[in-house]
């Protein structure tokens, strides 16, 4: 044992071994630190969100355009109507004056020829007709104006509804996305349209795939997500507060389900 420590120091290769082992590990560390990164992926931890948009059965776009086109017309109508009214009144006054004049003329020239009287009568008839026509035109315009007005009111209330509906849409989307489990085959650009039917308590009655994404697993996962939600509790409030909006928007509706922020 006396010899052993002395010999241990003199055993071959200790310094060589230490140096080479340290350099080996140093090299490895260097490679790990500097050079080699196995994959360059984002490590950002963020929730996956899926954009799902609700499609209304009746797209509101067309009436908006129509109304937008019509509104200025309605204003025009108003002005036109005023103008027409004024004109008509002026006409009336003139006619009355003319009648008085005519009567005076009649008194003056009682011995007017038949021909002349006939002509006057014809004139009169013509004027009457004109008046009638103007009145009819005015009535028509008034009707159109009232129509435009009511349409405008509809539009305003629809806009208010739309805001309400938008918040519920967001809620529905959230609920579905939270209950969705991503199948491994899901890809970013997939899009499935689901037809969903609700009852006023918010319970899901039926779900159907209206337009497939082409991937049946994905379709099924979206469908399952809706079934998993089972009941959209907040929709009950909506159906109590304004059953009209519920019936119009959420009784049957289409939902486009697109996972567009997946890390796929």
């Amino acid at each position: 044992m006396r010899l052993l420590p002395v010999r241990l120091g003199k055993l071959p290769g200790y310094s060589v071994a230490i140096v080479s082992s340290l350099s080996l590990h140093g090299l490895l560390l260097l490679i790990v630190i500097v050079g080699w990164t196995p994959e360059r992926k984002d490590v950002q931890i963020r929730p996956q969100y899926i954009q799902a948009t609700l499609l209304q059965v009746k797209p509101p776009k067309a009436p908006v355009a129509k109304k937008a086109a019509k509104k200025p017309k309605a204003v025009d109508n108003k002005q036109q109507k005023l103008v027409v009214k004024k004109r008509a009144e002026a006409k009336k006054r003139e006619q009355e004056k003319r009648k008085i004049r005519l009567r005076e003329e009649k008194k003056k020239r009682e011995a007017l020829t038949k021909k002349e009287r006939l002509r006057k009568e014809q004139e009169q008839a013509k004027k009457d007709q004109q008046k009638k026509q103007a009145e009819a035109r005015r009535r028509e315009q008034e009707l159109a104006f009232a129509d435009a007005l009511s349409e405008e009111e509809d539009y305003i209330s629809a806009a208010a509804d739309e805001q309400l509906v938008g918040s519920y849409k967001a809620y529905i989307r959230d609920r579905i996305v939270n209950n969705w489990s991503r199948p491994p085959s899901a890809r970013r650009n997939m899009k499935v349209v689901l037809g969903i039917q609700l009852v006023p308590t918010g319970r899901v009655v039926s779900v159907a795939v209206e337009k497939t994404s082409g991937n049946s697993a994905f379709d099924r996962s979206a469908e399952q997500a809706v079934y998993k939600v089972e009941r959209f509790e907040k929709l009950q409030e909506l159906s109590q507060a304004s059953p009209r909006v519920f019936e119009k928007t959420f009784r049957h509706f289409r939902l486009t389900f697109t996972p567009d922020d997946l890390r796929l």
Partner: peptide, 21 residues
């Protein structure tokens, strides 16, 4: 583990040299 690896490599190399010699 890194320390164990370093030390065991020291031993491996030293043993290898010694046994060969």
């Amino acid at each position: 583990l890194l320390a164990a690896s370093v030390v065991s490599w020291v031993m491996i190399i030293q043993r290898g040299l010694y046994l060969r010699q």
